[in-house]
Design a protein around this nucleic acid. Structure first.
Lengths: 376, 376
DNA sequence: TACTCGCTGGAAAGCGCTTTCCAAATTTCC
DNA sequence: GGAAATTTGGAAAGCGCTTTCCAGCGAGTA
């Protein structure tokens, strides 16, 4: 019943390749009349050893002729490491993550690596679960976009998952400020961005400024607040559009009339909400109230008025993070020319690398001179 | 440095598992004192044969105790089929695809399947390339979101790639109308949506309506145009915001004053552009000009005025498409209750299944009664 | 010329899991 | 009660590739 052993036979015509497809390395080796080992060495220059000219070319040609494509699973199994990387985001729908993902995929593609993307829908358990799966399949690494939970219980287990993964050779790098993780990270200069936002408003004569903040537990938020400095009226929201609306409405109600001449929202989603709140409260933007956002998501320019906001080079950050993950060593400086700060503690097995990206304020129509500032 | 490892302390001490990680089936089998085969049969009820109570429990327990996680690569290799599916989109950044991706990932997760997401950046070559890779790694299937190229040369090769993939057992399903492919598809009722849009405008008294169309080669566009019917002034654009702006500007310039009282853009991105163009042309929306979009992307409600648009259940479509891909057979009716039309040609090896999703017009602030319609 | 190296190509042992084939253990039927 | 039919667990042969060892060989050294 089992006599498909015709392999060895150099069947002249009608050589039917098994329906189930793919050309294997073995076939290539046979075609090139070399051993399996040699074919492997030629086609996947990973074993440290090269094969010289003549033979190599024969193999290449054979592979070409047969249309050989290596089987990633077999490779992963034999090497105990696959060539996929995971990209874990909160929500694919959020333009913030979409921009990062685009950059990451771009970089991954350049390296012939496939990206497994997973959305956690903000469920930290899922984040841990995915990390486990990536580990189980020997993924090359994982990109963690978005701040992790700071819930002590969960963050401990997350840290365990990361540790387990890295101990087995996986690389984990974060995009955005992560509370405590001892992993590589690519972060925007939140503090400076916030500083620029405030400076911009103050230059326009604004003195009474309200802040629609994000979850106080997030390191990202802390950094932005730090950059903002003191003396502002802050209300905490949850980084969503609705949250931004409510917080802004509250702020405006608490400071009627000219009590507040400007609002800074710690992300664009909330800024959009704030804009709506201002409209509903009868404040004209920017005449009565200036509004500044954070992130510069694509839709920011389409809001009305177009939003003045702090631009984060999200796409580049995604690219860089992936490059960091894949190359292991740091490549050239990215386009934006961030300053790379390596904290190379001698004691640590692997030093943690952090790449800072500069940010820039984009001034659009939502900010203008403060009403009473003409006198300055 | 990090010692939140308290949980793991219940280990009897001593027994050091190999650093390189993963528990293998073999270990589980040993622990349960059964053969490898039995362990496999218990843990992965795929072989058609079950194992009865006592033994089965012993294996389960052992697996539990050891924290066994099966190695997807080994499994894929042995089964000649992996448990990942590919999701190929044009652009992760486009909210349209993001919504679809969210749905697809949700459904995939429910099935324990991982999603490899790839963005083609609108390069059909990349689409073909990815399909090849998915094939090479025995992916369970691929979801193609967005219309394929209609360039004959490329589309032929794409069709070949699809055929090659399906011949090896991969399932390919499309989301959105695809020109010619003989594959399963999940499509929105474009025609009806367009009809609703026009009916809405006509009910408001609009008679002179302009259309900002998308690339005429796309089947999706053809369907929408068909639903719109005749007697409209149409200008073709490229589905981008900028294209929409230009097309709308042109349309408005060609029909000054009340020459046109309404505009229908064939997607929301272009509608956003049209809104901007109207503003720049000094037309008030909706007083002087009503504008209708298509898709109902998240930002539609945030435009000003909020956009009246045809809502596509993108997320559900993504979910359904993934379900179709994974289950092979059709599950229950989706939430939205689309009418499933199976074309079960007796002669075909596999019949092509198409799931239609109904769409609905969402009326917001960008449409109002036509200026001169009061007389009706 | 004899002998040790440094290279290069091939044989073969896995990587972790699935699945076919077998044989032993039951069960069923006359 | 014995033979045939049916289960059920295990041994083992791969899946396609990597990589360690080994043997063969021309080159360098004494």
């Amino acid at each position: 019943m089992d006599e498909q052993r015709s392999r060895a036979a150099e069947v002249p015509a009608g050589r039917v390749r098994p329906v189930t497809g793919a050309v294997t390395l073995k076939q290539v080796a046979a075609e090139a009349e070399v051993s399996l080992a040699t074919a492997s060495r030629v086609l996947h220059r990973s074993g440290g050893r090269e094969v010289r000219g003549a033979l190599a070319e024969r193999v290449q040609a054979a592979a070409e002729r047969l249309g050989y494509v290596s089987n990633p699973h077999a490779q992963a199994l034999a090497r105990a490491r696959s060539s996929t990387v995971g990209l874990i985001v909160h929500d694919v729908t959020d333009p913030y993550f979409a921009a990062i993902a685009t950059g990451a995929m771009h970089a991954a593609h350049a390296d012939g690596v496939m990206v497994m993307m997973a959305a956690t829908f903000r469920d930290p358990e899922l984040e841990i679960d995915y990390l486990g799966r990536l580990r189980a399949q020997g993924a090359r690494g994982a990109l963690l976009a978005g701040s992790g939970s700071t819930d002590p219980a969960v963050s401990g287990r997350l840290a365990d998952a990361i540790t387990a993964f890295t101990r087995e050779g996986g690389r984990v790098t974060a995009i955005g400020a992560r509370p405590d993780a001892h992993i590589d990270a690519v972060v925007p200069d939140n503090t400076d961005g916030a500083r620029q936002a405030r400076a911009h408003l103050e230059a326009l004569g604004h003195r009474r400024i309200g802040v629609v903040s994000g979850p106080g537990t997030l390191l990202t938020v802390r950094q932005r607040l730090e950059g903002l400095g003191d003396g502002l009226r802050t209300v905490e929201a949850d980084f969503t559009r609705e949250g931004g609306y409510e917080a802004a409405a509250k702020l405006l109600a608490a400071h009627p009339d000219g009590g507040l001449t400007a609002l800074i929202a710690l992300n664009d989603l909330m800024a959009a909400g704030a804009l709506a709140a201002a409209r509903d409260a009868g404040r004209r933007v920017p005449e009565d109230l200036s509004v500044v956002g954070f992130d510069d998501l694509p839709f920011a320019a389409d809001l009305s008025p177009a939003l003045t906001t702090v631009r984060l080079p999200l796409r580049q950050m995604g690219e860089r993070a992936m490059a960091l993950l894949l190359t292991g060593s740091d490549g050239a400086s990215p386009a934006a020319g961030p300053s790379a700060a390596s904290a190379a503690e001698p004691g640590a097995a692997a030093s943690r690398r952090t790449v800072d990206f500069p940010v820039e304020l984009v001034v659009r129509a939502s900010t203008a001179e403060a009403a009473g500032a003409r006198t300055t």
